[in-house]
Amino acid sequence: MTLNIHWRLDPAAEPLRSEPGTEHALPAFIRDRRATSRNRFDYYVQVARAVAQTAFDGLFVRHRSEADESRIIAAIVARETPRLLVVPEFPASVGSAVYAAKQAATFQRATHGRLGWAIAAEENAASREAEADFVPDEDLRQRLDEFLTVARGVHRDRPFTFQGRHFEVLDGGFEAPLNQHRFPKLFLQGEDDGALALSARHADVHLFAPGPVDVLAERIATLNTLTAVEGRQVAAGLIQPLLVREDRDGAENDVQHLPLASGTLVASYDEAADQLAAYAAAGVTELLLEAVPTLEEAYRVGQHLLPRLRARTGAARKAA
């Protein structure tokens, strides 16, 4: 299996970069001709170009309620990069499933089918209520199930009719030319069996949180059993935060300056490549990597880790 490797952009990370009015001042004797039309999106575009140039397969854009919206960022960076899969993450509370699918159709048409969808993990009730979302905890999975059923349904079938608790459609479905691209590659996440069962019905990729290789292998086996029941195939993905340096000492030294996300892989380039290759051998075919600062680390990981990792997984593939 080919290993697809994506980078994750967090729009709330490095919040001052390219933010008009908050940029660091230069000393007066340095002539400052930075364009006033510059804005935050210049930074997102810079990251996306870095990710394309360093041979990642895709760019994820995190959902952050305190930052720019992911689907707007995704459309802007997709127009500025030739090749990447672009995967905005958004919550199932965004509104009409038909409307979300219709927006996806335009995105696909304009980018030769380079859109993916990642559904964000649900936030707690108070945060949801601050988003005008009052669906109770116990109904959230059902809502997501219906959201995805309707979004896929109107994309695939004409006519499409559906009557659920959260969504309904009568005699719907897209016509040519809106239905001529594939549905966005769909990434779901979640650790419990219910999340895996939902992925088995809808996802193209189920994204796991970082953990030991043997634990992950077990969860992948469960996922595969559930998907076989549905008569489908769902790829296993791993979200992996990184702190990688030329050697282990350098990495451990830098741990002291950075608050790290839980499960961060702290390692040399070679060790990290070994570890990620082990995940690949356990059945992971989609890697979602992240590190801060987003731009510099995209270059580092793209230039140093990816070639090592691809050499290892390529060799394993040839041997198989």
Binding site: S37, N39, R40, F41, S65, D68, E69, R71, I72, I73, I76, F90, P91, S93, V94, G95, S96, V98, Y99, A130, E131, A132, D133
Partner: peptide, 21 residues
């Protein structure tokens, strides 16, 4: 308006304002 969550739609709109001046 019925097609979008009002808070999320406001976030999209403000992001577009930021992107386009």
């Amino acid at each position: 308006p019925g097609f979008g969550n009002p808070v999320h739609t406001a976030r999209m709109a403000a992001s577009l304002q930021r992107a386009t001046g």
